[in-house]
Amino acid sequence: MLRIDALKEIYAELEDCVVVTIMGAVAAELQSIGHRPNFFYLQHAMGLASSLGLGIALSRPGLQVVVFDGDGSLLMNLGGLTTLGRYRPRNLVHVVFDNESLLSVGGFPTATSTGSDLAGIAAAAGVPRTRAVKALDEFSAAFSEALAADELTTIVAKVEAVGPKAFVTDLGLLENRFQFQRYLESVSAERA
């Protein structure tokens, strides 16, 4: 499965979600499909995308939050999984694209390439729903089910270690940050 195909497969479902991604290929590929004001790309602070998503989810329980994480990033903040498992926000879907490598810095293999099982770690940390998927249709189904489940879910999707040619996009970091904040302000009236 290619990560960009996975993103395309669920892109329509992201329209009403609050989306937080990690840096690198995920951010560039989602932008290449089409940026929306409800998408925020954390272009550094590796590991903290899931914590940032938790902060939004706890602050605004009426919003559906989706975090696109990666194996390298999640391995930097495994403790954060125990915090997710502790508070279990029902409005958070945590997707981990696991390409078993640190692709954007040269493709060095991560520990998932030698057997570390992120879905297993998430489950053991207390995340109530976890799924491990390898095929596009499995991913698409798991994502839709997670949105409908009303329960914290971590989906670990194995993807190929290929990405875009470039990671820098036209969208400025601060432009994205303030646009995203304005988006969250704008939905405050309708949703909690």
């Binding site: 925020f40 602070a45 903290l48 899931s50 902060g55």
Partner: peptide
């Protein structure tokens, strides 16, 4: 928290969320 750096991410998200 399990480690303090998580708190930066959580406060980051809380701030954007108002």
């Amino acid at each position: 928290l399990a480690k303090e750096e998580e708190g930066v991410g959580i406060s980051f998200g809380a701030h954007l969320a108002g």
